Amino acid sequence: MAPFRSSTRAVAAALCCAAVLAGCGPADEGRPGDAAVRQLLERRADAVLDHDEKAYLADVTPARRAAERQVYRNLAALPLASWSYRLLSATGGDRVTARVQLRYRLKGYDSAPITTQEALLLRADADGRPRVAGDGDPDGQLWEQGPLHVVRGARSLVLGTGDPASLKGYATDADRAVPQVRRAWGDQGWTGRVILEVPSSLRDMEQLLDAPAGTYEGIAAVTTGEAGGHGTAPAGRIVVNPEAFAGLSPFGRQAVLTHETTHVATRAATAPGTPLWLSEGFADWVAYRDSGRSAASLAPELRRDVTVSGPPGRLPSDADFAPGAAAPAQAYEGAWLACRFIAATWGADRLIALYRSGADLRGTLGIGEDAFTARWRAYVKGELA
């Protein structure tokens, strides 16, 4: 499953606001000016990259120092290649809320910087110098959720706030997933490595994804990132729900991480118009293709429906995959069987070509959607009835 992190959306309105603020007259009395806020952000970024804890904490109020010390030490554990801030807006009086754009890149894993947004709460000291007094978006980043542990696998980087020993298992599974995805998809469009973020709970996962409580209950992992990376976009992160993941069998855990790693690999080739039956079905096809398991064992919910009422009348729609949909398991199983059918009938190379085309059935497979759907329905019935 691959939802897209809201923090990567366009920020044109906020940038316009920042431009207006930059052209304003003198700051309100007691309010730090935008220039002073920008200077604070530059010092903060330099301190992170220089591993200078003293300089980092010099711009923090005494009451906030313990929390910021933990954040700093978490950041110091990351293999940062870049880290920078851009002020988007600053509002308030002596207590300022600064909306900032954060850009950072992890060395060896990101092909370009990750872009996100943060809110810093600033307070001016006696001489008007701004200092960080709080976080306007607490727990919105993994490094803000408690002590961060970093486990480096051969092909993976696991970042987690839970039990350090359990993180090694995630790295082992991710290291197995990467070569499986590379055999199916190749190396084009991604680094051949994967980053996992493992928070301590479902609640913390939903904080990272800015999602309402319960949205991802029962979902073991999701992938963040923007569709359509144009070949230079950074890889997404796999964000794990540790509560759901813990209940999976070894096969289930491996399948989930291979599925999500496929989303990371295919991200640059996934257009906004790529139907979810193709992107989700392809990820499951990669995860299951070498399993040796039967269609009936891997699609039990759809098999039950087919036995009772026959195959579905249409391909799964995007809405069928949404959290809270009536029958998401059947949607995933039907999508997987659609991709399995394509690979079995036209070959794996043609399935990949279909994905890269954005689901141009006629141009890639020489068949229209209605005819394809009819043949898929017959295939589902043959495999599951």
Rank of each mutant, 00 (worst) to 15 (best):
L298G: 07
R289E: 13
A287L: 08
A233P: 00
T266E: 03
G218H: 10
A235R: 10
A211S: 13
L248S: 06
L257V: 10
A233S: 14
T274D: 13
A213W: 08
L257C: 09
G273M: 10
T232P: 01
S249Q: 03
A299Q: 01
H259L: 08
V240S: 02
A246L: 04
T270R: 08
V240K: 05
G214C: 06
R293Q: 13
L276R: 15
D290R: 12
S201T: 15
S279D: 06
D204S: 12
A296L: 12
E260N: 05
L276S: 11
G231A: 07
V286A: 11
E260V: 04
L298C: 07
E197T: 11
H230S: 15
L298E: 12
L209C: 00
E301F: 15
T307K: 14
V239L: 10
G281C: 03
G252C: 01
Y216K: 01
Q207S: 11
D290K: 10
T274V: 12
G281R: 06
V264G: 04
V308L: 15
V222Q: 08
F282P: 03
A269V: 03
A295D: 15
V306L: 04
T223E: 08
T270V: 03
F245E: 08
L208E: 07
A227Y: 15
V286D: 06
L302Y: 03
E206I: 09
A244S: 12
T215Q: 13
Y216A: 02
G273A: 14
E260A: 01
A255Q: 15
G228K: 01
E243D: 15
T274Y: 12
Y288E: 14
E243T: 15
P272L: 10
A295P: 09
G252E: 05
L278D: 01
T262C: 13
P199M: 04
A299E: 01
H263L: 08
L209R: 05
G236H: 05
G310T: 06
R303G: 15
H259D: 10
A265L: 10
G218C: 13
D210T: 13
S291Q: 03
T262I: 10
S309Y: 02
V222K: 06
Y216T: 01
E226V: 14
R289T: 14
A268K: 10
A295C: 14
V306M: 04
T215K: 14
L278F: 06
E301W: 14
A220M: 13
S291P: 00
H263N: 07
R293K: 12
N241Q: 13
A255L: 13
W285P: 00
S291K: 00
T307M: 10
A227P: 14
